[in-house]
Design a protein around this nucleic acid. Structure first.
Lengths: 205, 205
DNA sequence: TGATATTGTTTACATTGGAAACATACCAGT
DNA sequence: ACTGGTATGTTTCCAATGTAAACAATATCA
């Protein structure tokens, strides 16, 4: 089972391709993500990836999937680390979402951009991201029961929160915020202000 | 000056190409936007566009520029139509922003997506969108002076508003909201709720 | 009128996504 | 251990794309 130096078979090409794909986007942007470039980085022929992904879209979707797994793991971990107080758990998971988006901008971008995919792929994407949305909705129901959020339609509340969070991290990751706010304010300050604002607007205690 | 039927020269190819570019994105998505497709639609050879745009990026940027002109015109018109009350003018221009984003999703997408461009083009994009941000900041300074917004750093407030608005319209235009919220709530309701929330959070009276 | 700058067209080339045919390595059952 | 089948890679091929170069038609203006 030891890795043969010049093995014809790669070992775990699929994983290598996913890694290469992410690195490619990080280094030369989404435009630079080509099947052939990814194959080059993995040291295989340009057609090899087609044994693991039927399509360029499927390669991207696989990376997206890993991204959502990572995100959900981080949120879950934060929730558990926050102890037993339900509000603290809710806040922690939200914080984890933000940190993920700001800490793994490449993942976040492909997870939510959609521009890389054609319509077929977009359907799958929507499906995947729906789960995160549902989780947040459920959290809000709990929060309302505990009286830490103003009563109201949890769907609307979830949309409000997700809109704000998503907008902030999208702009931040696109460098549309850091440069514009040329005054002192750093990203951390902004993040806190933006989140406090929407939470206050929703009557979060 | 009359348009010759079989004129060798096109008349106004540049404008025709911009129009074709927008239509292409609308019909077959950003992925379908190719120089050659645009040329085809304009009825010219595939190399003709290069007489008007040095680059694919420059073609896209030209469309983006028209988008920002349109947006600013709409906001300005709304402001003027709102009369002399400064708060009403502020609200109206914000409303116009929302309506533009939701009403011209294609424009909005390319104006803020950036995924279509490589790094060179992105710089230009950032520059362009900075103006809109500055306008909003100025509006907030005025609003504070009039006492209709809580005192505070207008930059932070602008970031909060723009984050929320941008996030909402991005998700909406990507169909990430309509489908998820399978219950009754329609887009209009959501829009109102989201905007009220962030405004309340910022202490807008 | 004729020289020159504009705006098109044609031709050419490297890169890409993807299909097809072929090759090599792995695994099961005998 | 042999043998056939199935994964997994490689080569070769094709159409579409971005873009450069050389060429052609037209517009403009001295």
């Amino acid at each position: 089972m030891a890795v043969a130096k010049d093995a014809y078979h790669h070992g775990d090409l699929r994983a290598a391709l996913l890694k290469a794909a992410l690195e490619t986007i990080e280094e030369i942007g989404p435009q630079g993500l080509t099947i052939r470039e990814v194959a080059r980085r993995a040291g295989v022929s340009h057609a090899a990836p087609y044994r693991h992904f039927t399509d360029k879209d499927e390669l991207i979707l696989a990376v997206v999937e890993r991204g959502f797994e990572l995100l959900e793991a981080k949120m879950q971990a934060a929730r558990e680390a926050a102890g037993s107080d339900e509000l603290a758990r809710f806040a922690a998971s939200g914080e984890a979402y933000l940190d993920f988006a700001l800490g793994y901008p490449t993942y976040y971008q492909i997870m939510f951009s959609g521009d890389l995919l054609n319509s077929k792929g977009k359907q799958a994407l929507r499906h995947t991201s729906a789960a995160t949305f549902k989780d947040m909705q459920a959290d809000l129901v709990t929060a309302q029961r505990l009286g830490v959020v103003r009563e109201g339609d949890p769907t609307l509340q979830a949309v409000a929160i997700i809109s704000t969070v998503h907008g902030f991290v999208s702009l931040a990751n696109d460098n549309r915020i850091g440069e514009l706010a040329a005054d002192g304010s750093d990203l951390q300050t902004m993040k806190n202000f933006v989140m406090s604002s929407i939470f206050e607007g929703l009557g979060v205690k």
